[in-house]
Amino acid sequence: MGRLGRTLATAALAVAVAAGTAGWASGDGQEPVTGPPPGTAEWRAATVSGHRLPDPATASAYEVARFFAGLDRAARQELVRLHPQVVGNLDGAPVALRYEANRLAVLASGQSRFAALASPQRQVLAFDPRGRGQVAEVFGDLERAAHVAVVVPGSDSDAASYDAPRAPYTGPAGMARSLHRAAGAGTAVVAWTGYTTPVGVGLDAAGGRLAQAGAVRLARFTQGLDAVGAPDPVLFGHSYGSVVVGLAARNTDAADVVVFGSPGLHAETAAGLHTRARVWAARGPSDWIADVPNVEFAGLGHGADPVAAGFGARRIPADDVRGHTGYLVPGTRSLAAFAAIAKGEAR
């Protein structure tokens, strides 16, 4: 078999192995949610205190931050009341204002599947009901934290299911809560389900289309954190979420990039991510992702194995991790290492 034939066979095997080890559930291809939030047309037509409002599609997070800094409390509250969906998703807007706006936006959606997010105890930093829904929730005090971590989940994550009952310490909210408890009060952790994830293990999961769209949104989100004075974040990417993190890394100010249960980052080496962040990788001994060949061809596969010695990432101990989702279970060496990295204590 020639080189092309071997490559094609390996790419086919990658999809076949994923189907056999995780259950084939391709469903319909997902259309990524992109662009500014709902309500943008009304926002663009409005003014406050005689000022035009920053365009959510074109204004940088820093421009948004400067705009809100120039408003008094009454003007800010008027924008929250009239445009909660825009304010709640506007990177660069004050954190507390976004929490308030998103409570209103969740209630205004009228969808029972999102109702729990409207609780006054929840700190929802972003909420978009389009498609399967997207959400970012903060655990800890983001405005005063000395350290910030962002957890980016993989397939089957959305606003309705991200905090659904499941095995403890899995799913976006479960992972973020566990990391926050392990890292302590000085670290704020964001569960960022801010992109359209694949459903099941199929062509969407095997390709990079959704990850590329997600990477744009993640880079914008981290710019918003920087614009409001948050520390440089640590990005944690699980499974397909690691693909998103790998593609976004060069356009963020991340202090560290941590990937676990990763199928690849669309880079042959850590240096290929073109980031100044330190790059870390973990994979447990029973994680089925190890059975997926690390190839990238014709839009399928995600490239080199991040835990391979030649990739150049710092290896995180994960010998006591069970399965594909056990990395943040209390008592595991991986969670202890993740917490140290999140707090800036790992070397």
Rank of each mutant, 00 (worst) to 15 (best):
V80D: 02
V80F: 08
V80Q: 01
L82P: 11
L82H: 15
L82F: 10
L82G: 12
H83Q: 12
P84K: 10
Q85M: 12
Q85D: 13
Q85P: 04
V86R: 04
N89P: 09
N89D: 14
N89V: 08
L90E: 03
G92H: 05
P94I: 00
P94L: 01
V95R: 06
V95F: 04
V95A: 11
A96G: 13
L97Q: 14
R98N: 08
Y99E: 12
Y99P: 05
E100K: 00
E100V: 00
E100W: 00
A101F: 06
A101V: 04
A101C: 07
A101L: 05
A101I: 01
A101H: 01
N102A: 09
L104F: 02
L104W: 02
L104S: 14
A105H: 04
V106T: 07
L107T: 12
A108L: 09
S109E: 11
S109L: 05
G110W: 00
G110I: 02
G110C: 02
G110P: 03
R113W: 13
R113L: 13
F114T: 06
A115N: 05
A118S: 14
S119D: 15
S119C: 10
S119G: 12
P120Q: 07
P120E: 08
P120K: 09
R122E: 13
R122W: 05
Q123P: 07
V124P: 07
V124A: 10
L125W: 13
L125C: 13
L125M: 15
L125Q: 14
A126H: 12
F127E: 02
D128S: 05
P129G: 12
P129E: 11
R130V: 14
R130L: 14
G131P: 13
R132Q: 15
G133E: 09
G133I: 06
G133S: 08
G133D: 11
Q134D: 11
Q134N: 15
Q134M: 15
Q134P: 12
V135I: 15
V135Y: 08
V135H: 07
A136M: 12
A136N: 10
E137Y: 09
F139D: 14
F139N: 14
G140A: 12
G140K: 14
D141R: 10
L142M: 10
L142S: 08
E143V: 14
R144I: 05
R144G: 14
H147L: 05
H147A: 10
A149R: 02
A149S: 15
A149Q: 09
V151R: 00
V151N: 01
V152P: 01
V152I: 14
P153R: 03
P153S: 08
D156A: 13
D156Y: 11
S157H: 06
D158K: 04
A159E: 02
A159T: 06
A160P: 10
A160S: 15
S161H: 09
Y162F: 15
A164V: 02
A164C: 01
P165G: 03
R166L: 05
A167Q: 12
G171Y: 00
P172F: 00
P172D: 09
A173H: 02
A173F: 06
A173P: 00
M175W: 03
M175A: 07
A176V: 01
